[in-house]
């Protein structure tokens, strides 16, 4: 695998040509290439800077085993560090002892919240759980219809009320229903909102207070640019997230947001969306994401799909 990455980073590797070890002197040029790759992958600038500083410290003074050239070793250090930052192993969905487990979906407009709500509903159903989907987006035209349609597709019940009610009330009533009727998980779909929209962020906080979720998942479009940092920071500071779902990874975006989300919130990315269909949800694997961010493509995920 590192050979492929080494090809990608030919210039970075060249920086070490003819030298036996990674040093303060020769690492700069290579780091420049990494910086560029990360920015091309839409990792947020502040995160890139921090990451580069950490890699510099790790790389300089790394013992280079005979037979491996410093260039390859360097790429390996970068890749490892990416994997480390993004969290090593895969994190599962919260499962509260006191039922029902409540999961709240949040994010910008069009990120994929409603779709992800249905996907998680299907995942839980397949694990013999009894989820209830709650339609708490009262703004977007036909948002409720959308969730109801998806609910039918996966044969999971959807709780919805008139869109004249406040989302926090709908969410609360949904939770009551779940408690009364023995649903073990409640998934609350919410309207898309900008992190700079104070009113809508306030509403998100009220929804959270109303249902006391075990999990608040920030749903982020993997095609997102530099604002990933600010979005994560705002949602985390104002609402408090427990994890994230990165969507639309079936495309060819490099998904640098994964690094930004993790680094800024400290919370894991739990799932990735890999298609429009309700089955297209997979656990997040930092290893694969690291390769993808560095420009190796999401080879493994594609292999798994085939």
């Amino acid at each position: 695998m590192f050979e492929e990455l080494t090809n990608q980073f030919e210039d970075a590797v060249k920086a070490f040509k003819g030298e036996a070890k990674i040093s303060e002197e020769n690492v700069d040029e290579a780091l420049k290439q990494v910086r560029r790759a990360l920015l091309d992958a839409d990792v947020s600038l502040s995160v890139v800077k921090e990451f580069i500083d950490e890699v510099r410290v790790k790389a300089v003074g790394t013992e280079v085993v005979r037979g491996i050239d410093p260039g390859q070793k360097f790429i390996q250090v970068v890749h490892e560090e990416l994997v480390n930052v993004m969290g090593g192993e895969n994190d599962p969905l919260a499962n509260s002892e006191e039922q029902p487990t409540v999961i709240l979906m949040a994010g910008l407009q069009g990120a994929g919240k409603t779709t992800a709500t249905a996907k998680l509903g299907l995942l839980l159903k397949e694990k013999n759980k009894k989820p209830l989907l709650v339609a708490a987006d009262t703004y977007r035209p036909a948002a409720i219809d959308q969730l109801v349609t998806l609910g039918k597709q996966i044969d999971v019940e959807v709780f919805n009320l008139s869109s004249n009610l406040k989302p926090e009330e709908i969410a609360k009533k949904g939770l009551e229903k779940a408690k009364n009727e023995g649903f073990d998980t409640v998934l609350v779909d919410t309207a898309g909102r900008l992190q700079i929209d104070t009113d809508m962020m306030g509403e998100m906080v009220r929804i959270k207070e109303a249902v006391q979720p075990d999990e608040v998942l920030l749903v982020v479009d993997s095609m997102i640019g530099q604002e990933a940092a600010d979005i994560t920071r705002s949602f985390h500071e104002k609402v408090g997230i427990t994890g994230a779902v990165l969507t639309k990874l079936d495309g060819d975006s490099r998904g640098g947001a994964a690094l930004s989300i993790r680094k800024i919130s400290g919370k894991p990315i739990k799932f990735i969306g890999t298609g429009e269909k309700v089955e297209a949800l997979q656990p997040f694997y930092p290893e694969r994401m690291a390769s993808r961010i560095l420009g190796m493509g999401d080879v493994l995920t594609l292999v798994e799909k085939a």
Binding site: D40, A41, D42, L108, G110, D221, M223, I224, G225, Q226, E227, G251, D252, S253, R254, G256
Partner: peptide, 11 residues
Amino acid sequence: LDSSQGQNGLR
């Protein structure tokens, strides 16, 4: 084109 998108927009 969604203005919050990054470099994938060109592709």
